[in-house]
Each structure stands twice: as structure tokens, then as C-alpha cells.
Design a binder for these strands. Structure first.
Lengths: 352, 352
DNA sequence: TTGTAGGCGTTATCAC
DNA sequence: GTGATAACGCCTACAA
């Protein structure tokens, strides 16, 4: 008769010990790798465990050892591709270190606050937090847990803990460098709304890159608007229609991939060759970028590395403990620039 | 001095009991709502718990009671908007029932198999599985757990358990009905590749809808290709350029939103009014659909309801237990049609 | 209604 | 290196 509860497969460490004819302590040691030798006993234990389809009850393990091999991830409720990529990256990083991943998605800062608090109650080795768009510094107020918390992404360090984020300035500089290395001497920039600090920071970095790399950019080549396909289409029509090559930029950098695809379609209508006459780059990748014609060169955050770094910081915080004074501490800040994914909308490098 | 382990906030049920001057049993009962009265004792307990920032140790709770309030979700590693929406929906459904969510993302069927097995080891009340694209029926081979497993989405029932999926046929019929109710008598269909069984099923259902609703669709109005913006643009140019109104469809249905946006841009170039002369609908929603000009009417799966239904099936399976014979059982199959999100690219309904 | 005590499955501590 | 035993924090019969 099966258990009437949601109980797991009946096999426990006791059954394995009985079958292997050893003590439960030995079973525990063999299966957790705390035993060096690989003799007959070890084999017997592993065989018994396999036969019984045994796997440790992580609740009991966590209860006794205070190590849960579980990390938690708290995110805002944005159904964007970026969010999906973050989840995937963190999940893979967790798997790589044999950790389970607990996920909580919340729409408001208040809900996220409760979520983080609940995570602290769970036996969790660490918590990764992507702050809600409009969250304040009170996100971890009143949460005095020993559990290490680290912030991933976001524009400011809300949690006052370790922080892993994107280097927007370095990213746009890399984009400009990319097209310049491939022969462009003048660049247009179709910017996001600068309401967000990210947008403003990126625009600023773009302008300083111009000086740094001796690139021309007329004022009317820098536009600020939404990130739609149509915006890219209309901006490009206005910028390129009926003008000679010396009155138009040799490269277009867009904040969003959708905008860049609008640019590609408009240039196609105008019979302007990409990447021959004009190169196009997007600062952010999306699903459509790889399948556009020509395929769009775009940038994306190295989320795998950022997730791995987050886990490293958690592991590090655990060994260090909270022995350091926590007064006005702001934690480490690790920044990663986006990487260029070179596709057909930019030329072969001159360096090759 | 803080604990040197990754230990949680020091407060345990014993501390709360001491501070409230009651026994731990009373604390447990009050906090789990198993005590009806709301007298002074209950208040004292809650106050003490709050002051100590106490939250139950779920590992201990799960160990003792065999109910973990945790469900697991196993997904393939596709960084798509759909995947993000599924995760969000399941997370919200879990939160609504006060469940924690354990997430595992895997790229291969073999990895997913291991993942599901690992989930069974954890104290988990149920497992929701989105099968990897090319997974076989061996996905749960050798996993004889009492933990209920249910399949979410996918084209075939791989797990031979309860299954919650999308009704593609009903969805496309709803799309055709939508434009017909708004005055269209002829419809074009820009289909996905029919390599997937989903695509073929949808195309078939589209054709049967034509008869059912007495709608005209010339052969050349039905095209099968990729789901890009450019495809929509070029198909539309070919279909509409230089033709009179009696030679063109009054509505265009697209499998993908990107394709539909290409259609919108092309119709704009041809000065054909949307939705006045031609209505446009996409069978799938994406980020860009709401911000296109005009905003794109599209469909999306009712993932919140599907997630809630999944949890309901899990809860149901728990009470039923595995007392029913498991021989050739295939489980219940619950199908949901996509819903129409009416935006500007289709007209006001005649019924209004 | 309340308190007491036993046990969930595992790991840590101790003797051997 | 091995085995007996005590904890981990909580829930729940059972007794009061």
C-alpha cells in the first residue's frame, strides 16, 4: 500500500544500510563522499542505493547540517526575454554546483520584500535578488538574516549587499569600437528613452566614445524615442531618404533589436546595402535578431558568467560569515560589459 | 557571534514559545492556523514571533509532516518569451496557494530525466514538466515515485500522466471568428512551418474554419514559411501591391507576431488602412505586439489558468493517492484555447 | 485548550 | 574506518 501522504519513495538510509549490511553512518559517509576508500564496502553501499532507487531526503539533510544546497532567486514579474535568460543562466549555474534553485516572482516591491523574508526562513544557502523596477532601499529592511543576499542587475545598489551588474558605458563603447574597426567613420545612435538612468548613462558613454575614437555623429543622427520596429523604420527613412553618402552615417547603433530590425527593413527599401554601405548594431539581443535579413549583429549580457559570479559571491560570503562589521557596508560591485555577437549586419573586421 | 554555518536567523519555535510563555505546541498550532480562538494567547504568540523575526524552518516542517508546500517545475532551456510567461504563471499560481517553487532548466532530454529524478528525492508535493522538444516517452522511465507528475504544454503526452495543453484547433477557429464577426469575408493565413505537429494541426483547423464560417481564402493567400518580420513584409507586398480590393483578403492571420508586424509595415507602405480595409491578427503574442502601430490584435495562452489547473491536478492526485492502478493509465487531458487580445489592428465588433 | 514526549531522516560526535 | 547515539526544528498523538 502506498503512503497516503505526498511521501517520497519509501527507501531511506536505513533500508540502504540494511541491504548493504553496514551502518547508516557508513552509508551517509560513502554517499556524501566523505569516505576516501573505494573498496568493497563502498561498492556495496552504492549498489544498494541504486537498487532501492535511493536519494537523500534533502529536508532531513538540511535540517541536520544547516547546508541545503539550495539557492533562491527573487525576480520582478516582467515576461521579457531578458528575464527568461536570467532564469536560465542562474539555473544552469546552480546545476553546475549541484544546487537546487528556489524561484519567486513578484509584481510589486512589497511582495518582493515578503518573498525575500520567506526565503530567509527556508533553509537556503543564499539569495539572488533582481530588484523590482521601482523598489526602494527598504527591500531588505528588517531582514537581518545570516543568509547571504546578493543583487543581480538593476541600476542602483538597493540591497546594500554584493552586486553584480552590467557596465552600460563599456558596452556602448564596445559597440562603437566594433563598427569603427570595421571601417565606419560616422555613426548614428537610436537611443532608448533616457528616463531610466540606464538610458542616460548609455547615451553619455556613446558621446564620449565619439571623441575617444574620432567618430563623426551629426546631431540629427542621435534620436531618443521608443524601441519599436516602426521607430527604426521611420527614423531611418528620415535620415537616409534622398541623401548622398556624405550626408548619412556609415553605421547605426540601436538600443533595441526591434528598432534595428526596422532600420534594416528601411535600408532594404532604400536599396542601401548592409553591411556594405551601412553597418547596423543593436545593444540588446532578442529572438528575431538572428533570423532577420541580414542577420543582426547585437550585444548581450554574459549572463552565464554573471550568474556564476553571483554564486561565487554567495559561497564566499558563507565562508567569511558576517564577522565583518555590517554598519555602512555596501558590498562588492562586479560589472560585466555586454558582448558583441557578430552577425551579417556588420562587416568582417579589418584586423582579420 | 554569528553562527559559523549558513544557519538561518537564530529564532526557532523554542525561542518564540519562551518569549510568549507558552509551549512550543501552542506556538505551532497558532502559527499554522490549527487553533481557532484569537485570544490573548494567540496574540502573544504572534507578537513574539514578529519580534523575533521568526519564520518556520521548512526543512524541519517538511521532514516531520511529509508536506513540503513545494512544487517543482522542469523546463527545457529555450530562452523564449513563452518560457518566461510559463515560469511567471506557475510561480504566481504557486504563491497563490502558499507554495514554494523549485525550478530546473535543462537542455537535453537526458538532463531533464535526471532532473525529474532529483526532484522526486526532494520533499516535493508535485512536479510540473514541460518536456524538452525532442524528448521521448522514456522521460519518466524508472521513476516510480509517489510524487504526482503532470505535463504542461507539449504536442504529445510523453509522461503518461495528467496533461494540460493548448487547443490549437480551437484557437485558430477563434481567430477566424474574431475577424469574421468584425466584417471580414475573406482571410489570408501566413502559417508557421508545418514541420511541427502544432503547425500542421493549426493549418488544418484553419482550413476547416473556412467552410464552417463561409469565408473565402485563395490558395496564394495561404503561405508557409518562417516567422520573421521580413517574411510578413514580403508576403504582403506580393499579395497586395497593385491589386484591387476584390483581389485581396480583408483579413490576415499570422502564426507569429513578428510576421504580423511585417504585414503592418507593408500595408502602411501601401497606404492600406488597418483595420479599415484589412484586419490583422497574430496567433501568438510577443513584446512588440502591444507597441506596434496600430497595436496588434493577438492571441495568447491563458497560462495563469493553465498553471492553476496544473496545481489543482497535483492537489487532486495527492488526495487520491496512487491507489488507482497505474498500468496503461494516461491521465486526464485538459485543453485550453488561446484568448484573443483585441487591439487596434482589428475592428470594433458588429455585436457591440 | 494546553503541555509533554516521541519521532521524521540525516549528519556529527564520540567511543572503539 | 566503523558503528552506536545524540542532536537538528518541527508536528502530532496522547495525556492532563
Amino acid at each position: 500500500m502506498a503512503s497516503s501522504h505526498g511521501k517520497q519513495n519509501g527507501a531511506s538510509i536505513t533500508n540502504v544500510a540494511a541491504l548493504a549490511d553496514v551502518s547508516i553512518a557508513t552509508v551517509s559517509r560513502v554517499l556524501s563522499g566523505r569516505r576516501t576508500k573505494d573498496d568493497d564496502i563502498a561498492r556495496r553501499v552504492r549498489k544498494a542505493a541504486h537498487e532501492l532507487n535511493y536519494s537523500v531526503n534533502s529536508a532531513a539533510s538540511a535540517l541536520r547540517s544547516d547546508v541545503s544546497n539550495t539557492i533562491a532567486l527573487s525576480m520582478p514579474a516582467t515576461s521579457t526575454l531578458m528575464a527568461a535568460s536570467v532564469v536560465t543562466a542562474v539555473s544552469e549555474a546552480a546545476s553546475a554546483t549541484h544546487m537546487q534553485l528556489l524561484l519567486g516572482i513578484d509584481g510589486t516591491a512589497a511582495a518582493q520584500h515578503r518573498r525575500i523574508k520567506a526565503f530567509c526562513g527556508h533553509p537556503t544557502d543564499g539569495i539572488i535578488v533582481l530588484p523590482c523596477p521601482r523598489a526602494g532601499v527598504s527591500l531588505t529592511r528588517g531582514i537581518a538574516a545570516d543568509t547571504p543576499i546578493i543583487q543581480l542587475l538593476g541600476s542602483t545598489n538597493l540591497l546594500r549587499h554584493d552586486w553584480v551588474s552590467i557596465d552600460n558605458g563599456a558596452s556602448v563603447e564596445l559597440a562603437v569600437t566594433h563598427v569603427v574597426e570595421r571601417g565606419a567613420a560616422s555613426v548614428a545612435y537610436l537611443s532608448d528613452e533616457v528616463g531610466s538612468s540606464d538610458g542616460a548613462e548609455t547615451l553619455l558613454a556613446f558621446q564620449s566614445s565619439l571623441n575617444l575614437l574620432h567618430v563623426r555623429a551629426d546631431n540629427e543622427w542621435i534620436t531618443i524615442a521608443d524601441g519599436t520596429v516602426q521607430r527604426g523604420f521611420s527614423d531611418t527613412m528620415r535620415m537616409f531618404a534622398g541623401r548622398g553618402a556624405d550626408q548619412t552615417p556609415e553605421a547605426v547603433i540601436c538600443s533595441s533589436s526591434d528598432t534595428a530590425i526596422g532600420v534594416l527593413i528601411a535600408l532594404g527599401q532604400l536599396s542601401i546595402n548592409v553591411p556594405g554601405q551601412v553597418q547596423v548594431v543593436s545593444l540588446q539581443d532578442n529572438e528575431a535578431a538572428a533570423s532577420s535579413m541580414p542577420a543582426l549583429t547585437s550585444m548581450h549580457a554574459p549572463l552565464q558568467q554573471m550568474a556564476a559570479e553571483s554564486l561565487r559571491l554567495i559561497a564566499n560570503a558563507q565562508t567569511n560569515g558576517s564577522d565583518t562589521e555590517m554598519g555602512a557596508r555596501l558590498g562588492r560591485h562586479v560589472m560585466f560589459p555586454r558582448r558583441v555577437i557578430a552577425r551579417q549586419s556588420t562587416r568582417e573586421s579589418n584586423d582579420d
